[in-house]
Design a protein around this nucleic acid. Structure first.
Lengths: 226, 226
DNA sequence: ACTGGTCTTGACGCTTTCTTAACGGCCCTG
DNA sequence: CAGGGCCGTTAAGAAAGCGTCAAGACCAGT
């Protein structure tokens, strides 16, 4: 049974969605504001989230980034605002889809099915700890240990490491690193990568000048070698 | 570089999209109808497809199902019809997103980024590893091994090899190699090919002077023989 | 307002990669 | 068999990319 978390501060709409989704066989969880949404998402592990942007407590994009910090659950954003700036912002923050109110219920359901279908072919979600040499990288806990000692990483450092580790062995292009860690507008700031890769190597590699795990492929990108 | 296939029968819109996408650093492939779209998708392996539903030859959903038969490439549907029935149909056929015309270019770009982001974090990398003699060519990892030993390639070398391997067995013209690896303005610089093919053979072939995989077809182009 | 941590930015030397040139071999044609 | 394409090989200078260090900007918590 697919579990949907619906986040909306409008009780009427919430109720309508709940009825419709339940009628289609979904299990429905609900939250009235962003804080509770994050809480429910963390504890109930829904399969997909329908998120209204106009929440009383938190900004919509903050909810998205809060979720994306630890999860890849598909997020479908609902909003009354047709402004394309909002859409861009939400999508770049990590939303999977954006539906403008008023919307047809069958359209929302179709988008929901599309989101769930995609997620179900994606076996990401149960790969908690990656070991590589003296490194233990816990993706769920967002923590790295070197020789058993926990190493502190900044958010940006972690973002880079996580992306590389999730694609371990594969080449990750500079462009992808920049868009996913900094955002699509930073695609050309390759300098950042050099600075941060040097920092990561200093923290994680036995010999920073001869890296064994964080490999540079000149002109192409970087690669995490286990 | 992300490769986008744009399918539209309206030359004007096609041109506008091409310019905008190219300006954002995408490599743009185009097709004017469904048949050609399926052909290009199969042979050029784009990273994402933007598909207009109003095509002259095939029904939009047929194009989607045709693609979904063998590929999980993200598909963003474009349509003038706001009818929610069409959306449901397209999404259930396997489309990833549905954008109604007229649309804002920045919104489309954001949805494009979202689709590419999802696909890239999805390790359903159905890019195969191609074996040829002592060579193992991993297209997803962008890595080649010879007798199990990883061989380092420069970006240009990899670009040539990848193109040839993706068209394995078939002849790839010099013109195509030059335009895809160096850019359309280098179509006459056939000399580059000689230099780089020699380098590739030295790195990959058992006997560089009697190549078994990287075959020259004099006056025509090159061919990768598995 | 101060502090500590983090992110951005600039400068420099070094390495890798690209471009270009020169030369010799092969094969077809006249 | 002479000449002109076309191809392969090698090498060296030019250009682009990389690693490193460090200073200033920014931001949140005290």
């Amino acid at each position: 049974m697919t579990r949907v978390l619906v986040v909306d501060d409008d009780p009427q709409l919430l109720r309508a969605l709940k009825i419709n989704l339940a009628a289609r066989g979904y299990t429905v969880l609900t939250a009235l504001d962003g804080t509770r949404a994050l809480h429910v998402a963390a504890h109930q592990h829904p399969d997909v989230i329908v998120l209204d942007l106009g929440l009383p407590d938190l900004d919509g994009t903050d909810v998205i980034t809060g979720l994306r910090g630890w999860s890849t659950i598909p997020i479908i954003v609902l909003s009354a605002r047709t402004d394309s700036g909002d859409k861009v912002e939400a999508l770049d923050a990590g939303a999977d889809d954006y539906v403008t109110k008023p919307f047809g219920m069958d359209e929302l359901l179709a988008r929901l099915r599309a989101a769930v279908r995609r997620a179900s072919t994606d076996p990401t979600g149960n790969e908690p700890v990656v070991h590589a040499g003296a490194l233990d990288i816990d993706l769920a806990a967002k923590q790295v240990a070197r020789d058993g000692e926990v190493v502190h990483l900044t958010p940006t450092e972690w973002g880079i490491l996580e992306l590389l580790v999730r694609h371990q062995g594969r080449l990750v292009s500079q462009r992808q690193l920049l868009t996913e860690v900094w955002g699509p507008r930073y695609q050309t700031e390759t300098h950042y990568l050099r600075v941060y890769l040097a920092q990561l190597r200093r923290k994680l590699e036995p010999d920073a000048s001869h890296p064994r795990h964080l490999i540079t492929e000149p002109g192409m990108g970087y690669r995490f070698k286990p």
